[in-house]
Amino acid sequence: MTTSTAAPGAREHGRPRLLTGRYAIIYLFVLPAFVLRMLYSFIPLVQTVWLSLTNRSLVNPGAFVGLQNYQFALTRDKTLINSLGYTIAYTAASTILETVLGLGIAVLMMQRLRGRGFSNFVMLLPWVMAPLLAGVVWRVLYWEQSGLLNFMLLEAGLVDELVRWLSDPAMARVSVIVLTVWKNVSWVALIFMAALGSLSKEVLEAAAVDGANALQRFWYVTLPLLRPSIYLVLMLRGMAEVQTFEQILGLTQGGPGNATRTLALYSYQRFFVELRYGYGSAINVLLLLLTVAIGGVFAWLLYRSGTRVAR
């Protein structure tokens, strides 16, 4: 142990000395990861914010235009407004459905049923699939003229005519959500299974001794104890769903028309197809703000629920 002057920042033990071999090694271990990650996350993020204030494009080196892109986007660009609305509705619907269904599956899976290993394996399959592939798979199922889904519904007498899964705008919006929920619900279930497994058995047993039935125990004991996990799932899924791009590309390509064009698909269109870097970046900044808002709200709730439990 060193006894001489402690390095700045080495408050706890006074162990490492500045510029001695060990201190250099510490940074040598941290900096490659840190610098590389910053180069690919926050630095491009700042560049995007800067680009969004210019009218740069492939053919135009770009001049500073202030908030003009945003002004145009939010007041005149109807496609963007629709896209923003659908992104929010899509994110809310798929996140909530995933959380509710995932919790249900997790509770079911924790009932000590047989074949748990097999069930886990099956559950992991949709999760392990590339989102684009999931989109392609469901496009086969949703095929309208004589796809399997329509056939089964007709046979079962649940519908009278062929459902226009992907060609009817309203229906396509729902079809995309179904695909997303199918793809991600097992991940949510896995998180909840871990959370349920770590709940204290004593509390639940005490509630049973007090005469609470299974439903009451779930509602008044399990659910409140799960609150941090629920916020965590809502946060992570919400932030992921709001950025959805690939499975929609695989399923509908944003169509019919612009019905399922989420913000990510729309900004892709502007930035990489039309090569309007400035305007595309402005849309990306809106996407960023949405992501940060979702993350912020649930991170705050998570933090609050954590401190409350700790007290």
Partner: peptide, 12 residues
Amino acid sequence: SIAVPAMVTLGP
């Protein structure tokens, strides 16, 4: 940096 959307970094 997990929270930074891929789409937002892709352009730059």
